[in-house]
């Protein structure tokens, strides 16, 4: 399965990263990360709508957003 093959190395890297390491970004160094332009989901009401637009027209689903329901896609 292509997806699992791709996921396994990433998971292994993350597990190894958690061993023997200390947090490398101090709290006072995180101001840039907190800026709104860095947000993946800055406006949930608008983002959820776009996920719905794609879900109704694409075969792919998951790992993005949106709930169940009809698609209005006929």
């Amino acid at each position: 399965m292509n997806v699992l093959r791709l996921l396994a190395p990433a998971a292994a890297v993350m597990l190894l990263a958690g061993c023997g390491l200390k947090p490398w970004v101090a709290p006072y160094e995180r101001n840039l990360l907190a800026e709104p332009v860095m947000s993946f989901d800055r406006d949930p009401v608008a983002g959820t709508y776009m996920h719905h637009v794609y879900q109704a027209r694409e075969g792919a689903r998951g790992a993005e957003g949106g709930g169940g329901g009809g698609c209005g896609c006929n």
């Binding site: 990360l33 860095m38 993946f40 989901d41 800055r42 790992a63 993005e64 957003g65 949106g66 709930g67």
Partner: peptide
Amino acid sequence: QVLRGAVAAVFA
């Protein structure tokens, strides 16, 4: 909130 966004943006 940024971390939340990284997570929430890919979930329902």
